[in-house]
Design a protein around this nucleic acid. Structure first.
Lengths: 336, 336
DNA sequence: ACAAATTTTGTAAACGCTTTCAAGATTCTA
DNA sequence: TAGAATCTTGAAAGCGTTTACAAAATTTGT
C-alpha cells in the first residue's frame, strides 16, 4: 500500500512557530495557552489538516479511550440491540468500541490482549474462559460481566436481567390465570446461566403451587430452534403431550411451535407455548408468542455505564438485575 | 482506577539476559534467533506473563492491524449477519475490528479518525458524508464501500448485491408466472441506492413486458414497517388497490401485510405481496413472504477480503455484485 | 589455522504524543 | 520600580515497540 504522508504534531508546531508541547496543549485544552498562540496553532492545524494520532496518544497517555466487547459468536436476535446499546453508550461517553469474538480463538488458546488496547472490557456470557477472566482480574483490569455472574473469587460487577423472578411470574401466570398444571420446560445450552435461573424460577413457582415437576418433561432446547424441535418431536412420538411448554428462550419456542404443527397439534388449544426474550418474530407468529420481554439494550447500556464508573475510579453496583415484562399473546391461550 | 504494573519487553529482556531487540525478534519471529536463546526468552515470557503491547507495536510498526467499520446506525435485521461476516473475516486474517456509528456525530461534524487507528475502513451505505470520504480518498486511505457506489471522482472498490437484476427477475416472475399486470412499488428511503436500483429493475421488467407503471402506485416505504403501513393504508382509503405490491425491502413488506390485513384484504387472494432481503421473519409469517434473499454475510466477507487486498498492495476488483436468490413463498400466490 | 562468509545479537534511532520541570515573560504589590 | 507572583512556553524524558546498522560470535573454506 502506498503510504500517505502524515501530518504530525511537529509539522503543526513548525508551521505555527511554537513547540510541540504548545500544540499538544492547544489540542487537548489541558493548560491555558495565550489566545494569540492558540489562534496561530489553530490556523496551522486547519491549514495542514492535522488529526492527532490516537495510537501515539494512547501510548503516551497510558489510556486507549476504547472499550472492548468480548462475545462468543455474533449470532442471534439479541445481538443487534446489545451492540446498539453498547455502541451508543460508549460513544456518548467518548469511547471507541473494539469487538472480539472468541469463537475461533477458543481452541487456539490465544485471546485478545484486552489489557493493552482497551481501557476495560465487557464480557458477554461465558465468552471468556475462567482462567483468562482470573488472569485479568488479578491484574485488576477493569471489566464488567453481562448475563453471567462471576465465580466467587472474582469480584467483578455483573449486569443481567431478573431471570428467575421473570420465569416465576410467567409460570405463576400460566398456573393461576390459565389453569395449567402440567408444564414442561425446555432448557438452554448446558451451563448457560440465564437458562439455569429461568429453570429455577419455573421450579419454584411449580413448588409454590404444589405442583410436581415431571423430570420426563424437562427437555433440552439449547436456545435453538432445531434442538427444541427435535426434543418436542421425540416427546410426541413417545406419547408425551404436556398441556403447556415453557421454552427457555424464543428461538427454542419457534422449534416447539414447528414440531407441534407438524404433529398436527393446535396451539394453544392442544398445547400452550411460551418463550422468553421477546425476539422480533414473536409478535408476528400466528399464534403470536407469549413471552418475557428482556431489555437487552438497557442491560447493555447499564453494563457500559458500570464499566465507565469503574474506569473513573467510582465504586459501581456489583450486581444489577433489570426487570422484565410479561408479554401475553395468543400462544398461551389468552384471547383479548 | 488502580494502575496495574505492566510487564514490558524490557522486563523480559532483563529476565532472559538478552537485549530487547532479541526479545522482539523471538516474539515476532521475524529473524532467526539461536534455539537456545529462543528458549530462554520463551521461558522468561511465560514466567512473567508477558503480552506484547499492541499500541506500542502499532506506533513503531506503522500499522494497527485493525479494520474499521463505519455504519450509520446499528439497527435492522441485516446488521447481525453483516457484523458476523465482517468480524469473522477480519479475525481470520488477523485483524481486529473497530466499530464506529456516525449516527450521533453527523451534526457535530467530528468523525472517527479512521486514518490513524485503523489500517483501512469499510463504509456501509452512506454512513460517511461525501466530503469526509473525499478527504480520506485524497490521502489514499484504504477503504471499501458496501451497498453504495462511490461518486465518480472517488475511485474506491465497492461490494454490493445485484439489486437491479434481482428486482427484475422478481417482477419477471410476478408477471410471467403469476400473471399480475398491475404491480405497485414501495420505495426505500430517499436517496438509498439499493432502493433506486430495485426500482429501476422493477421499471425495466414492466417495460419489457409492455406494462405501464402507474405513478400513483409508486409509494414511499422507507425500508420501515410504519411508513409502508401508512402508505398502503392511504392507498386503500383512496380506493387504490393494486393486484400486487412489491416492497423494496422486507421491513416495509411487513407494514404492507399489516395494512392489508387491517383493511380486510386477503393476501395473496386479493393482493399479492413480495419483499426484498429475506429477513428472518419472512418465512415465519402467514402467509410466508415471497422475497429476494440478499447474501448479506457474503457481501461482508467479500468487502473485508477486498479491503485486505488493498492493504496488501494488490489490485482488487472495483465493483463486486453478488447474486441473490428468488425465494418464492405463499404471499405472492404460489402454492406448492 | 586464518581469513572470509555467515549467523546471531546488541545499540540506538525512530514512531507521535503527553507531561514534568524549569526558564522566560508578564503582571502585580508595596 | 524592584521583587514577588503568575502566566505562558519550551526542552526533554518517557510510553513499549520495531528495525537499521554494526558488532560479536560462529561456521566455513582452503
Amino acid at each position: 500500500m502506498l503510504r500517505m504522508k502524515r501530518v504530525t504534531i511537529e509539522d503543526v508546531a513548525r508551521q505555527a512557530g511554537v513547540s510541540i508541547a504548545t500544540v499538544s496543549r492547544v489540542v487537548s485544552g489541558s493548560t491555558h495557552v495565550a489566545p494569540m498562540t492558540t489562534a496561530k496553532v489553530q490556523a496551522a492545524i486547519n491549514m495542514l489538516g492535522y488529526k492527532p494520532n490516537p495510537i501515539a496518544k494512547h501510548l503516551a497517555g497510558q489510556r486507549t479511550n476504547t472499550i472492548g466487547l468480548i462475545v462468543d459468536e455474533i449470532v442471534g436476535d439479541f445481538f443487534q440491540p446489545m451492540l446498539r446499546g453498547i455502541e451508543q453508550t460508549s460513544s456518548e461517553h467518548g469511547y471507541d468500541l473494539l469487538i472480539h469474538s472468541t469463537r475461533m480463538r477458543r481452541r487456539s488458546g490465544s485471546y485478545p490482549v484486552a489489557e493493552h488496547n482497551t481501557d476495560g472490557i465487557i464480557v458477554f456470557g461465558n465468552s471468556l474462559p475462567l482462567d483468562e477472566l482470573r488472569r485479568l482480574y488479578i491484574k485488576q483490569f477493569p471489566m464488567v460481566l453481562m448475563h453471567q455472574t462471576p465465580p466467587s473469587d472474582v469480584h467483578v460487577p455483573c449486569v443481567t436481567i431478573e431471570n428467575k423472578r421473570s420465569a416465576q411470574r410467567m409460570v405463576d401466570y400460566l398456573i393461576e390465570q390459565r389453569g395449567y398444571t402440567e408444564i414442561a420446560f425446555l432448557r438452554g445450552p448446558e451451563g448457560n446461566e440465564d437458562s439455569q435461573w429461568r429453570e429455577l424460577g419455573f421450579r419454584e413457582s411449580m413448588a409454590a403451587h404444589g405442583l410436581k415437576v415431571d423430570d420426563e418433561l424437562i427437555g433440552m432446547g439449547g436456545f435453538e430452534e432445531m434442538q427444541a424441535h427435535h426434543t418436542v418431536t421425540q416427546w410426541v412420538r413417545q406419547g408425551k403431550r404436556p398441556r403447556c411448554i415453557f421454552a427457555a428462550d424464543d428461538d427454542s419456542a419457534l422449534g416447539v411451535l414447528r414440531a407441534l404443527k407438524e404433529a398436527g397439534l393446535r396451539v394453544p388449544q392442544d398445547v400452550a407455548v411460551v418463550g422468553f426474550d421477546d425476539i422480533r418474530i414473536a409478535s408476528y407468529l400466528s399464534p403470536a408468542l407469549t413471552t418475557v420481554r428482556a431489555p437487552i439494550e438497557q442491560v447493555s447500556r447499564v453494563a457500559v455505564e458500570t464499566l465507565i464508573q469503574l474506569l473513573e475510579g467510582e465504586t459501581p453496583q456489583m450486581l444489577t438485575l433489570l426487570p422484565t415484562e410479561l408479554i401475553i399473546r395468543e400462544s398461551c391461550g389468552y384471547s383479548a
